[in-house]
């Protein structure tokens, strides 16, 4: 088995995730796309762990999963807050940063 096949899969999922983040208007969908990106990173970690015969890759994949859980929690809280304030979770409408 080639190492590359895993890396390509990860790259593809990563780019799909990026597309999702950039193209979606719905806040929850943006969060889902971010999950996809994190997962592609995990594939890389585990694949390299297997490649080098080192267990650290798996450990870090686990850490990433834990961070992802935290990220989803806070992210959803923010989305809910935006929804409550604006009755909409369209990220395009959240443009308070406009200069």
């Amino acid at each position: 088995m080639f190492l590359n096949q895993f890396l390509f899969l990860a790259a593809a999922l990563f780019c799909i995730g990026i597309y999702g983040v950039l193209a979606r208007r719905n806040g929850v969908l943006v969060l889902m796309s971010i999950e996809l990106i994190l997962n592609s990173v995990n594939i890389n970690l585990v694949a390299f762990g297997a490649f080098h015969g080192h267990i650290g890759g798996q450990v870090f994949a686990l850490f990433v999963i834990a961070v992802a859980a935290a990220e989803v929690g806070v992210g959803l809280a923010i989305v809910l807050l935006i929804y409550r304030n604006r009755r909409s979770i369209d990220v395009a409408e959240a443009n308070l940063l406009k200069g």
Partner: peptide, 10 residues
């Protein structure tokens, strides 16, 4: 894919 890579716990 994790299973294929031998990372069962992950």
């Amino acid at each position: 894919t994790y299973v294929i890579l031998g990372a069962e716990f992950v």
